[in-house]
Design a binder for these strands. Structure first.
Length: 550
RNA sequence: GGCGCUAUCGUCUAGGGGUUAGGACGUGAGAUUCUCAAUCUUAAAACACGGGUUCGAUUCCCGUUAGCGCUACCA
């Protein structure tokens, strides 16, 4: 089978329902589909499964598309943005636009005698199930409506009884091949006649009309779509394994070739339960908001259930992944999502990334999380050199209160050194505003009150160090330089005999509110230069007055 | 209850009838540093259990156990 496949490029699809945000598990499925298609030179198709009109929302579809693009996953065929034309010759690519196709196929199966009307009520079926469970038998539909005589059917129809349409399947094993798991077989007598079309109102209340469109169910439409779209490899989550025999039966009823399958294991949380919001972030858009880089997330997802052939390489971009990815190497066992490893990859890619790009992303985080201390940057996109240039040369000139070119350059340089200082201590970009918040000021009372700080400050050595330091700062005019600081430290060391942690910790607490943080040589210029260029930042002098004054 | 899937360090995984069972994250220790982070060095850490098959099984087969999924006229 694989030999035959190698001649024709494979066609794969990712088929999400727009009923919520894109979950990491689904994103990983999309990624594996995309990688497989790229590797084999095939087509990757996006199909929107929106037959559940009640839960499907356009905004989720829009978000989904945005998230996939963000991850770097692009499709060869799929729906256009709402109102835009689709790409590909196998459309429509939204199931809600394919209802007529499904109805036509149902008519065909009915005409061929392969499908039948099932008048059983939901209660009837429930009773059958209960009985089967009590007798320790597989809970499958008895098939009692399969051979209803024409008179009964006509009577029921005339009486307006609701019915579903089922596919009649022979009692035999249903098998398929799974690239991840090998051959899978469901024994005879374990699979019900699949429902193809459900009653219009979902049960005893409604009427099912093939012509008018009773509602076709998932297992049915997915099979028709996959077959009609020429899908050769169905790569999806393993929660679909038990649906697969029914789909195989549907392929066979139509006389269509059964595709290859690859069922990907579930992603679990640390407690070995299916990963959900309760474990932390789960949707791609949340990770994005938190300041994870797409290449980090894609790399991590690729590693969850797959390993490189050398057993060693851990970091790759999806472009590097595409030529080496293979479904044969995907593990069948479920994987626990490890936020620590994701963080490690994110730090790795933050280091690798273009500083300009990181600066832009970081700036967004500051605007979002600290608009109070960072009003300047919220509009800095407007303040590019090009913008200023443009406005200056307008005729008549527009008068805007724009900062000068020099000021922009100055502040930009300052912001970049802020980033350089704090980036190494951050897992994801949204931690930046909190990590660096002491630069913009801190609460001296809270800092004194902190138990660890209080213990350090209570020491006699700490008192003398601080008073020595304070008197030097007060006696000093203008911004403090690292050189000033170094000189003072040496003087204080000589005057008090205190050194090491006992010397530095009190000063650090007074200046930053905490006993740990980045090196003084870089913190002090950041503070003094930032204050000097008019940012709302307390100077070293301000800090000492505020802190010692308390 | 039924059907199905899964089982190598705490986690993600490599490997495969005979190996010192490899790598990465995390953890511990050390170096560096005023501290924290980063960085470098280093250590500890695994073949679920029981039967086969075999000269030899972590590897192949069968059970057991555990976990997960499905068990709808949801997708």
């Amino acid at each position: 089978m694989l030999v035959a496949m190698t001649n024709t490029p494979p066609r794969v699809r990712f088929a999400p329902s727009p009923t919520g945000l894109l979950h990491v598990g689904n994103a990983r499925t999309a990624l594996y589909n995309w990688l497989f298609a790229r590797r084999a030179g095939g087509q990757f198709i996006l199909r929107i499964e929106d037959t559940d009109l009640e839960r499907s929302e356009t905004r989720y579809e829009t978000q989904l598309i945005e998230d996939l693009n963000w991850l770097g996953i692009h499709w060869d065929e799929g729906p256009g943005a709402p109102g835009e034309p689709e790409t590909g010759n196998y459309g429509p690519y939204r199931q809600s636009e394919r209802l007529a196709i499904y109805a036509k196929h149902t008519e065909r199966l009915m005409a061929e005698g392969k499908a039948y009307r099932c008048f059983c009520t939901l209660d009837d079926l429930e009773a059958e199930r209960l009985l089967a469970a009590a007798q320790h038998r597989p809970q499958i539909y008895s098939g009692r409506c399969r051979s209803l005589d024409a008179d009964t059917i006509n009577r029921n129809l005339a009486a307006g009884m609701p019915y579903a349409i089922r596919l009649g399947i022979e009692d035999r094993p249903l098998c398929f091949h799974d690239i991840v798991r090998g051959p899978v077989e469901f024994a005879a007598g374990t699979v019900s006649d699949p429902v193809l079309v459900r009653s219009a109102a979902g049960g005893s209340a409604g009427l099912s009309k093939i012509e008018g469109g009773g509602i076709p169910v998932y297992n049915y439409v997915v099979t028709i779509d996959d077959a009609l779209m020429g899908i050769t490899h169905v790569i999806r989550g393993d929660d679909h394994i038990s649906n697969t025999p029914k789909q195989v039966a549907i392929y066979q009823a139509f006389g269509w070739a059964v595709p290859e399958f690859a069922h990907l294991s579930t992603i679990l949380g640390a407690d070995r339960e299916r990963l959900s919001k309760r474990h932390g972030a789960t949707s791609i858009s949340t990770f994005r908001q938190m300041g994870y880089l797409p290449e980090a997330l894609a790399n991590y997802l690729a590693l969850l259930g797959w390993g490189a052939e050398d057993g060693k390489t851990e970091t790759f971009t999806i472009a590097e992944l595409a030529p080496i990815f293979s479904l044969e190497r995907v593990t069948p066992s479920p994987a626990i999502f490890d936020f620590d490893k994701l963080n490690w990859l994110n730090r790795h890619y933050i280091k690798q990334a273009d500083p300009d790009r990181i600066a832009k992303l970081a700036e967004r985080q500051f605007c979002l999380h600290r608009p109070d201390v960072f009003p300047l940057w919220s509009s800095s996109e407007l303040y590019t050199a090009e913008t200023i240039d443009l406005l200056e040369h307008l005729d008549p000139p527009i008068h805007l209160d724009l900062p000068s070119r020099e000021m922009i350059a100055e502040r930009r340089a300052w912001f970049l050194s802020l980033l350089a200082l704090f980036l190494p201590s951050v897992d994801h970009l949204d931690q930046l505003p909190i990590k660096s918040s002491f630069i913009f000021g801190f609460d001296p009372d809270a800092s004194h009150a902190d138990a660890e700080n209080a213990a350090i400050l209570a020491a006699d050595s700490a008192r003398s160090v601080l008073s020595e330091f304070a008197s030097r700062v007060r006696a000093h005019a203008g911004p403090v330089t690292p050189e000033d600081f170094k000189t003072w430290i040496n003087e204080i060391k000589a005057a008090t005999g205190v050194k090491g942690k006992e010397l530095f910790h009190p000063i650090r607490i007074a200046l930053t509110g905490a006993h740990s943080g980045p090196e003084f040589d870089r913190v002090i210029p950041l503070i003094e230069e930032g204050a000097a260029m008019g940012l709302a930042i307390p100077t070293v002098h301000d800090r000492i007055e505020q802190f010692v004054g308390v």
